[in-house]
Design a binder for these strands. Structure first.
Length: 465
DNA sequence: TGGGGTTAT
DNA sequence: ATAACCC
């Protein structure tokens, strides 16, 4: 089934057709055991070196040259030309230049264009199915289950290409046309190809896709054939896939901390985790984490594709070698705030909470951040939609109170990062439940996610100081 | 390690 | 408010 893909869609020729003359090889009433939600079709879409692609679209002269995107002294991502010359993601600029003197670098500290393109991709995918979950700026999950069901019902048995997989099949496993699960995933691969083709035609972006029965497997399989190709995982190959991981740290959902704790228990491979005592694991990591990651080790992941919708927060941050005075901090905070106000203005919703985050210098330790947040005074919120200069000064005052609440400015200090975050976003005028206004405010009475945080906010009320 | 994001506790 | 996770 696997073929070299010239690029995107195109269905593989001469693969599989229906067996009986004019008859479908499965029966429609075979569709999924007992109408349960058990078998899903999920696609993970992963853009190729996203920031570099956006830069090459902005400036086509960069195409064909080894290109790196720089933030501070790091090359955070680079195109494939640069990768072939030895440049890696998150490589030091000096090491990268040493490896590859011809490397062209562009500054990518301002995420605006990346963010905008990222949401265009998500919106394009939402046209296929509204159930799209973002993961970072360059990855999306889409639950294709419903779309696949609809296409199965529409399927005409006299179309020879109707049952042809698009892209690679993991492990070259043959497709069984009598297996409804195979058929559904195959349809998923066709939709994935259409998605990638739409991304290229409408946005000029290439990327990979993985199709499988859950998010974990879809994500793992999407990276098998790397730039600009797609891979389908059939259920029988899922154990091969997860055992192809060399270490548990490669399992999405098992991060730095959990990896360290697992290693301390002598667990390093996926099989180690599969066979480790559940009881002991639960005792060591807590029942929630233990049960979740042990299921992951078997390739099981029942987490739903949760529609991301509009962002829950907006933040701007800046890192630096040293900030050690209040004036310096204030200037940086003003810069961050100015950018944020523009973004919030464009979004249309209003943040009801503001947070200030700092990172203190510490010579050798693991960096950790501290934050203080408070409700945004209502008189400031009301002025937010319009010209932002009225709100600058009172907002900066609020932020500097938060700052002095965290940092004793009478003592020497050394910060290496400042960040300002707007969250607790609400649609317009905070319509109250039960009022006419509430039911006339679309995002409140139906798909509301605003107000989600309000019950658990234990803020410092700056007005109380 | 940058400059973002999310959810759980 | 922090800690974990993701990119």
């Amino acid at each position: 089934m696997e073929r070299a893909e010239a690029w995107a869609a195109g269905s593989s020729p001469g693969a599989l057709g229906p067996e009986g003359p004019g008859g479908l090889p499965w029966s429609h009433d075979q569709v999924v055991p007992a109408g349960s939600s058990s078998s899903r079709v999920i696609v993970h879409v992963d853009l190729d070196c996203f920031y570099a692609q956006v830069e090459m679209i902005s400036n086509p002269e960069l195409k064909g040259k080894p290109l790196g995107v720089q933030q501070k002294y790091l090359v955070v991502t680079c195109n494939y030309e640069a990768r072939e010359l030895g440049v890696k993601k998150l490589m030091n600029v000096r090491d990268a230049k040493e490896k590859c003197p011809q490397l062209v670098l562009v500054n990518g500290e301002d995420l605006t264009r990346y963010r905008e393109m990222s949401y265009k991709v998500t919106e394009l995918l939402e046209e296929f199915s509204p159930v799209v979950e973002r993961l970072g700026f360059d990855e999306n999950f889409v639950d294709l289950t419903e779309m696949v069901e609809k296409r199965l019902e529409q399927l005409q048995s006299d179309e020879p290409s109707a049952l042809t997989v698009s892209g690679h099949v993991y492990g070259n496993q043959p497709i069984n046309l009598h297996d409804i699960l195979h058929i559904r995933l195959l349809i998923g691969s066709q939709i994935a190809a259409e998605m990638r083709e739409a991304m290229y035609n409408q946005l000029g972006l290439t990327g990979c896709a993985g199709v499988a029965s859950n998010k974990l497997l879809a994500k793992l399989v999407s990276g098998i054939f790397k730039p600009n190709q797609q891979t389908l995982l059939l259920p029988e190959s899922s154990q091969d896939l997860i055992h192809s991981l060399n270490h548990i740290k490669e399992m999405p959902g098992i991060g730095y901390k959990t990896t360290k704790r697992l290693e301390a228990l002598g667990i390093s491979s996926v099989r180690d985790l599969q066979t480790f005592s559940s009881k002991i694991l639960e005792r060591e990591l807590g029942i929630s984490v233990a049960q979740r990651i042990q299921k992951l080790s078997f390739g099981e992941d029942n987490s739903p594709v949760t529609p991301s919708g509009p962002p829950q927060s907006f933040s701007e941050e800046d890192s630096f070698k040293k900030c050690s005075s209040e004036v310096e901090a204030k200037n940086k905070i003003e810069e961050l705030l100015a950018s944020l106000l523009n973004r919030v203005c464009q979004d249309g919703r209003k943040p009801h909470t503001i947070r200030l985050i700092i990172r203190r210098y510490s010579s050798e330790k693991h960096y950790s951040r501290e934050s203080r947040q408070c409700p945004i005074p209502s008189h400031i919120i009301q002025k937010l939609g319009i010209g932002n200069y009225d709100v600058m000064t009172p907002m900066v005052d609020v932020l500097m109170k938060l700052f002095r609440n965290m940092v004793n400015v009478k003592m020497p200090f050394h910060l290496t990062l400042l960040s300002v975050c707007f969250c607790n976003l609400k649609a317009l005028n905070t319509a109250k439940k039960g009022t006419i206004d509430y039911y006339l405010t679309p995002s409140l009475s139906t798909t509301s996610r605003s107000g989600k945080h309000s019950f658990k906010m234990k803020d410092t009320h700056m007005e109380d100081f």
